Simulated scan of single mutants.
Amino acid sequence: MKARLRRRGRPGALSAEPEYALVNIVRIPDSQGSPARAIGRRVLFALIALLFTSLVVYIDRSGYRDVQGGTLSFLDSVYYSAVTLSTTGYGDITPVTPEARLVNIVVITPLRVLFLIVLIGTTLEVLTERSRQALRIQRWRATLRNHTVVVGYGTKGQTAVDAMLGDGVRPSEIVVVDPSQAALDTAEAHGLVTVRGDATKSDVLRLAGAAHAASIIIATSRDDTAVLTTLSAREMNKTATIVASIRESENSHVMKQSGANSVVVTSETAGRLLGIATQTPSVVEVFEDLLTPDEGYAIAERAVEPGEVGGSPAHTTDIVLGVVRDGQFHRVGEPEVESIELGDHLLYVRRGPADKDR
């Protein structure tokens, strides 16, 4: 254990890296505009710069000399502006008066630089985006508190995130950790902050802000990975609610001993629903309805209202399934919760969107 703690503070740890080094590891979603629109803006800016330069040259045309000895026309001004801004410079039209040369230095030279920036805008945009991402990562790490870390963005992780979003959790309050870049690209497309890496390593969890998270969902594909991740997460955060998913029920007690508050056995849960569906398919539909928070019925938790203190959970206006008291769940009907106490929380069936924010 001491060795693990020493490794966390080593200089090469991910959590100790500067923000610019984390750009390819931490991704904070940003609104992306259309590529055609971005190109159109650059072309428009280039045309405006060319037109403005042409007008400046045409107004001061008496200060320029043409090798043909004629007076500059507006077309000549556009031609001179184009070859000047593109740094081609054929030399057939040149400023000869001090005033024209001063205008060339003060006005046309800065426009030439801006014109070149437009031409190489793609490269500059990549560099700017990298710096902007580094700045956003710095701000994000400084303010990250009471969020949810989702380890694993496979089918289980995506479904868990969908349930949270449907229950009103903002995407900015969810951080996804996964070693697969393809999975992270999907999460980022849904507006989620992503961290690429192995969550069994404490540095990756620390980078995701697990030490300050309110809850941690572990939805890995392997039970041994889930156990190691739970151990690291609980060691890092003593108060977070850790919910883990495993395949085999025999590993449930190991997950609880590792620090998980709740363990979901996916294989047995699916098996029970399959068995129930053979006899009473409607029951399965009810379960699916309860597990879909954004439509139909849903299971929710709320604090006890002052007028309900002293009464029975079965006599409230809601369909109460259980009472959470001092962090322990009690079913309705158990003697410990015959009477509602101040500070209790009720697990109830939410019966419509209007009741969602109660």
Rank of each mutant, 00 (worst) to 15 (best):
F287S: 02
T97P: 05
R4T: 13
A13N: 05
I276A: 09
E301W: 04
A199P: 12
A270V: 14
T194K: 11
S34N: 13
V23E: 08
V349H: 04
S267F: 11
A298F: 00
G191I: 02
R351P: 10
V78H: 02
E17K: 15
R272I: 14
G296R: 04
N261R: 11
T109I: 08
E19W: 05
D198P: 07
S282C: 05
A21Y: 14
R331Y: 14
G307M: 06
R7T: 13
Y20V: 15
Q181E: 11
Q257W: 09
T87Q: 10
R358P: 03
V151P: 00
Q328C: 10
E173H: 12
S252H: 13
T280A: 13
T159E: 10
D76P: 00
Y153D: 05
L165A: 06
V204D: 07
G343T: 08
T186L: 15
A210H: 01
G307K: 03
S86R: 03
S339D: 06
S245D: 08
D357F: 06
M236P: 07
M164N: 03
D357L: 08
V243C: 11
I39M: 04
T123N: 13
A183N: 12
T200A: 10
R7A: 15
D326Y: 02
S262E: 13
E336G: 07
V227A: 10
H315G: 11
D185E: 15
N146F: 06
I105L: 14
I108H: 02
G154W: 01
I28T: 07
V149K: 04
V26Y: 12
L22S: 09
F74A: 09
D355W: 08
G12C: 12
R247C: 04
D66Y: 13
V67E: 12
G70R: 12
D318V: 08
G63E: 12
Y80Q: 12
P353M: 02
R234F: 08
V320T: 08
R37G: 02
V320Q: 07
I137F: 06
S31P: 09
E334N: 13
T155K: 12
T155S: 14
R6Y: 11
K201H: 10
A213H: 06
R136I: 06
V103S: 01
L75V: 07
H190A: 13
R42P: 04
G91W: 04
L205Y: 11
H212N: 14
V323D: 02
A160G: 08
S202D: 11
R27V: 12
G322F: 05
A211R: 10
V113L: 10
S54Q: 00
